[in-house]
Structure formats: structure tokens, C-alpha cells
Design a binder for these strands. Structure first.
Length: 294
DNA sequence: AAGAACTCCTGTTGGC
DNA sequence: TGCCAACAGGAGTTCT
């Protein structure tokens, strides 16, 4: 489901009810998601405060009092729902079920000292939760090979060009690879390539000149990636199917898609009369404008 | 080492 | 209406 803007939106939604709060109960409804839940999961959380809720790439990262960190990934279909104490009073009609009553695919349910219930729901179970000593977070196998945050300082044209030098993989696959850039997925790769006028079928080395220096295309792509992510975060992410923000609100960036999911529709550039095309790359749909993206 | 194929799982959608 | 195939926002593992 979620790419960087959606995970950041979830983080912002969870922060007020999790950051600085103490976990008093954990209901773990099955042994695993994609991977087993952490050993003695509830023992390691109960009675402890969540000191901070961060995001790295598409991971939610909760620093737990006592020196451990909980790393969570939402996979394709993971989401959190928040039920506030006395929510019927606070938000009449907002919850269709009794507070505390669990829904199908609620696999882990956290209770805080304040009586807030935070349920992790994930039909496909491609998500996962793992714990690591906070001191070893950066060297954790899931974290250590991640590329730079696209909205951070380490990500720029010089980096991208050097990274792409000599690479024969197509641009779509190159940008989807989290080791190159962290946090992009199918939607935002398609949208960023459209915004920068680059074909998803180009080889990644198209981004670097001789000696791995950036060119004008690299600059355009970097700017487009930053812009589309910022726009999406400002819109609260994209709501496809039933994805919602943690507070139940729908993100609305899906209304701003230029190409994603728009096969057969006219290119949104007024001067272009081409139709958006869908192809399959590495088993995933790619949407692009064959006229604007070269 | 890089790249491509395969895999996990459930739910929804579209065509007949 | 039912049935079935295709597809879905991800990424670790395994192979070449």
C-alpha cells in the first residue's frame, strides 16, 4: 500500500497518540505477519513508554524506553486504526464498531495508558514488525543498505548520477530499488518520471554523463521526485482502495495523479495529444506518456 | 555484482 | 447471478 508520503502521513497521525505514551497491553492475534512477530513481543513493550515515532524510508520506527526500537513496515495492505477513549463522545458516528471490538485482519492491537487503542490491520500480511537494540538500528539488515531519504540533503543530482553510472537496469527498476533511493514505490516513480519527462524504459546510466557526472536530466529528475513527494505529503498521501490516514481521513493526492492508473486517458499536458500507456516492467504496471517521456 | 524471476497473502474488479 | 483470471501501493530470496 504505502509509499513514503503515506507512511509519513501515518506517522503524523500516530504521533499524538503514541509519542511519549506508555503501552499497557498488547494483543497479538497470530504468530507472524510476513515474518514472525518479535520474541516475547508484549513483554518487551508492556509498561514501556514510546519515546519517539520516526520514519525511515517506508518504515515506521518507534524508539522504546529501555533501549529497544520497534521497526514496522506496512507492506502492501497494512494500516493502523486509532480508537480514542470515549470516542463515541469525542467523535460521534466515526467508528462503526464498538471501541475495542476487533476487525478481521487486526493482527496486533496496542493499548496505551490513556485508553487509546491502536490496531494494526493487514489483510495480505506483507507487512512486518521487528525489534532491535536502538544502538544497532543503523546497522540493522533492513536499514543499513537503504539509500538516502529523497527529501534529505544526501539526495542530490551528483549522488544520483554517480549511483546510476554504468547501470543497465531501466529507470523504473532503478528508482524502485530502495538501495538507490529510499521510499519511492510504483506510484511515485511513475509520477516523478512523468514530471521529469523521462522514459521509464531508459537505462539508468542515461542519468550520468562521462565520469558519472550529473546532467540536466538528473537535475530534472531530482527536482521532480522532491516535488511529487512534497505535494503528496501535503495532500495526506494517496487513497487507493480503502487506504486511510490513521485518523480515518482519506488522503487526496490520487486526484492529482498525472499518469498512475490512467491508461488510455489523454496526457494531462494541454499541448500533448498522446494517450497514457500502461506497460509491465519487472512484473509491475508502469504508466507513462510515450510522447512527453523520452 | 547486478539484474531478473519467483514468492509470500487476501481482496477486489472486470469480463464472460 | 456466478465463476475465474488478472491485478493490487512491497521487497526478501534465489537464480543466473
Amino acid at each position: 500500500m504505502p509509499e513514503l508520503p503515506e507512511v509519513e502521513t501515518v506517522r503524523k497521525g500516530l504521533e499524538p497518540v503514541l509519542s511519549g505514551r506508555r503501552i499497557v497491553r498488547l494483543e497479538q492475534r497470530r504468530p507472524d505477519l510476513r515474518f514472525p512477530f518479535p520474541e516475547r513481543f508484549s513483554e518487551r513493550l508492556i509498561g514501556r513508554r514510546i519515546e519517539r515515532l520516526n520514519r525511515r524510508s517506508k518504515y515506521l520506527v518507534a524508539e522504546i524506553e529501555g533501549g529497544e526500537t520497534l521497526i514496522m513496515h506496512l507492506g502492501m495492505s497494512g494500516r493502523f486504526t486509532i480508537t480514542l477513549p470515549d470516542c463515541a463522545q469525542v467523535m460521534p458516528g466515526k467508528f462503526e464498531h464498538d471501541p475495542g471490538a476487533h476487525q478481521k485482519h487486526d493482527h496486533a492491537v496496542f493499548h496505551t495508558e490513556e485508553g487509546t487503542i491502536i490496531a494494526y490491520n493487514d489483510p495480505r500480511r506483507f507487512g512486518f514488525m521487528v525489534m532491535t537494540p536502538t544502538a544497532e538500528f543503523e546497522s540493522h539488515p533492513l536499514i543499513r543498505d537503504l539509500g538516502p531519504e529523497p527529501l534529505g540533503n544526501r539526495f542530490n543530482a551528483a549522488y544520483l548520477a554517480a549511483r546510476a553510472a554504468g547501470r543497465t537496469a531501466d529507470l523504473k527498476a532503478f528508482l524502485m530499488d530502495q538501495r538507490n533511493i529510499a521510499g519511492l514505490g510504483n506510484i511515485y516513480v511513475c509520477e516523478a518520471l512523468y514530471r521529469s519527462g523521462l522514459s521509464p524504459k531508459r537505462a539508468a546510466r542515461f542519468l550520468s554523463g562521462r565520469s558519472g557526472a550529473p546532467n540536466e536530466r538528473t537535475e530534472r529528475l531530482v527536482a521532480a521526485i522532491r516535488a511529487v513527494l512534497c505535494d503528496a505529503i501535503a495532500a495526506g498521501g494517496s487513497s487507493l482502495r480503502d487506504y486511510r490516514q490513521a485518523d480515518g481521513a482519506l488522503g487526496y493526492f490520487q486526484h492529482s495523479f498525472s499518469v498512475y492508473g490512467r491508461e488510455g486517458e489523454p496526457c494531462s499536458k494541454p499541448s500533448c495529444d498522446a494517450m497514457v500507456r500502461r506497460i509491465v516492467q519487472a512484473g509491475r504496471s508502469t504508466f507513462y506518456c510515450p510522447a512527453c517521456q523520452r
